Amino acid sequence: MEQTVRFRILIDDQIKKVTLSSGVPSTVAELVAAVKENLSIPTDISLQYKDEDFGDFFTVTSTNELKDKDTLKVVYAPICLDLTVADQESNCDVSVMSSFDSDSASGSLDSQDTVILSQSTFERQNPWPAVFPIPTFSHNTELALKQGNETYLKEGTPMTSPGFRSDILERLAEAMFSYTAYPDDAQRSAVAQALVEKHPCLKEPGSFNGIYGWQQSLKYKCGNYRTKRRALGSPELLINSLSQKPGDEQEVAKNIKKAKRAELNYLPPHPPGETDDTLENMRLEIITASKRKDCGKDINYLMTRTYSLRRKEVVSQSPRVTNFMERWPALFDTFQINAEFQRCTA
């Protein structure tokens, strides 16, 4: 009789336990199926396990590597969003084809009627990870960390040289910005924890948890990094500058506009080569195209291209719904609402 095994599962921002009474499955596919069934995951996933020797996660290629109480991490497979246009007698009927909802469209599809939603113009592609991936630092810093980790494992002596701290913090701030411009305390703590787990020589001996100093340093470094990105014209940071606020709200910490919950592309920059004027011309084209029967493919492209302009209007102007409907009538369609959600959440 197989021995019962338990796995610690990291999924999104939660930690769950999965118990398999029949023991470790013989194949990776069976393990993935068991995890999906226990956690009710409808989409395709892969699994990673935490290696004790390296203290990092590696892709599960064989279940022979696994044992009771191992830690596994769920990695979602990327979702391909296809916008498919089907001709109708009176209007444009659009269906969303995705990896988890392949039954939502009917009828034959022409390859020329499929428009792929390109996200290359968006600032971010992925939500905040369950376990923060520590980036690769400069060559000299990586060499110092390698030596420091070896010394720490042998002698228990942490690396105290301050020469590499600035490079580490700068690279971490840049990596955090790729997920959110305004990380909170919990996120900074998660980054600091992941840092000392990957590089134990950086653990602070005088700190009550070994990471408090890194948390505080990340707080100030992220603020400095935002200042640099604001100078380079990042829209989601410029919107919070004092020059953009009304006279009665010109305080640094007052009425901060930032992404909430699943919003990733809260206020992205315009696509390369586009300006407010060029995107305004596209908005007028959308209104014209929406009056035609064969509107779908043109509108899908234009709506994706003008996403940054719409977000700028919503965030900076807070327009009334009636006024927004007049300017963007194509958005108030079931398909375009779903597509807009995908643009915002990547």
Score class of each variant (00 low, 15 high):
F7Q: 00
R8N: 14
I9S: 00
T19G: 02
T27D: 05
V32A: 05
L39Q: 06
S40F: 14
Q48I: 02
K50W: 08
V60Q: 04
T61C: 04
S62P: 06
D70N: 14
L83C: 04
C92F: 00
V94C: 01
S95C: 07
S95T: 03
S99E: 13
D101I: 09
S102L: 12
S104A: 12
D110K: 00
T114L: 11
S118D: 11
Q119D: 10
F122G: 01
P135R: 11
P135D: 06
P135S: 04
G148K: 06
G156I: 04
G156V: 04
T157E: 12
M159V: 14
M159E: 03
R171K: 15
E174L: 15
M176V: 13
A194W: 07
L195A: 01
K198F: 03
K198V: 07
K203I: 12
G213C: 10
G213H: 08
I256M: 12
I256T: 13
D276T: 12
T278S: 15
L279M: 11
R283N: 14
I287A: 04
T288E: 15
D294T: 04
K297D: 01
D298K: 09
M303I: 01
T304Y: 01
R305D: 00
R311V: 07
V314T: 10
V321P: 00
N323C: 10
E326C: 11
W328F: 06
A330Y: 00
I337R: 03
N338A: 12
Q342N: 13
A346K: 06
